[in-house]
Deep mutational scan, measured.
Amino acid sequence: RTAFSSEQLARLKREFNENRYLTERRRQQLSSELGLNEAQIKIWFQNKRA
Rank of each mutant, 00 (worst) to 15 (best):
R1Y: 09
R1S: 12
R1A: 13
T2V: 12
T2R: 10
A3S: 12
A3F: 11
A3L: 11
A3R: 13
A3I: 11
F4V: 06
F4N: 02
S5W: 04
S5C: 04
S5E: 04
S5V: 03
S6I: 09
S6Y: 10
E7I: 06
E7S: 07
E7Q: 08
E7K: 06
Q8V: 09
Q8P: 01
L9Q: 06
L9A: 04
L9C: 12
L9S: 04
L9K: 06
A10Y: 05
A10T: 08
A10F: 04
A10E: 14
A10R: 07
A10N: 08
R11K: 08
R11M: 06
R11A: 12
L12M: 05
K13D: 15
K13F: 12
K13E: 15
K13A: 14
R14P: 01
R14N: 08
R14I: 10
R14L: 10
R14W: 10
E15I: 04
E15H: 03
F16L: 03
F16M: 02
F16A: 02
N17C: 11
N17M: 11
N17R: 10
N17L: 09
N17Y: 09
N17S: 11
E18G: 04
E18L: 09
E18I: 09
N19A: 04
N19T: 05
N19K: 04
N19R: 06
R20F: 05
R20K: 12
Y21R: 06
Y21E: 08
Y21G: 04
L22P: 15
L22T: 03
L22F: 03
L22W: 03
T23K: 04
T23W: 04
T23P: 07
E24M: 09
E24F: 07
E24S: 14
E24W: 06
R25D: 13
R26V: 07
R26Q: 11
R27Y: 11
R27N: 09
R27C: 15
Q28W: 06
Q28V: 09
Q28H: 09
Q28T: 08
Q29W: 08
Q29Y: 07
Q29P: 00
Q29R: 09
Q29K: 09
Q29M: 10
L30K: 00
L30Y: 01
L30R: 00
L30H: 01
S31Q: 05
S32A: 14
S32W: 12
S32V: 15
S32G: 07
S32Q: 14
E33Y: 03
E33T: 04
E33A: 05
E33H: 03
E33N: 03
E33S: 04
E33P: 00
L34W: 02
L34E: 01
L34D: 00
L34A: 02
G35A: 06
G35T: 03
G35V: 03
G35M: 06
G35S: 06
L36F: 02
L36G: 00
L36A: 04
L36Y: 01
N37R: 07
N37K: 08
N37T: 15
E38R: 03
E38F: 04
E38D: 06
E38W: 05
E38K: 04
E38L: 05
E38C: 06
E38S: 07
A39W: 15
A39Q: 13
A39P: 03
A39V: 12
Q40F: 11
Q40G: 03
Q40M: 12
Q40E: 13
Q40N: 05
Q40V: 15
I41H: 00
I41A: 00
I41P: 00
I41Y: 01
I41W: 02
K42G: 12
K42S: 14
K42H: 14
I43V: 08
I43E: 15
I43S: 10
W44E: 01
W44F: 08
W44T: 00
W44Q: 01
W44M: 02
F45E: 02
F45T: 00
F45S: 00
F45P: 01
F45I: 02
Q46G: 06
Q46D: 14
N47F: 10
N47I: 12
N47Y: 12
N47A: 11
K48D: 03
K48M: 15
K48E: 15
R49M: 13
R49G: 07
R49T: 10
R49D: 07
A50S: 08
A50P: 04
A50C: 12
A50H: 10
A50K: 14
A50G: 07
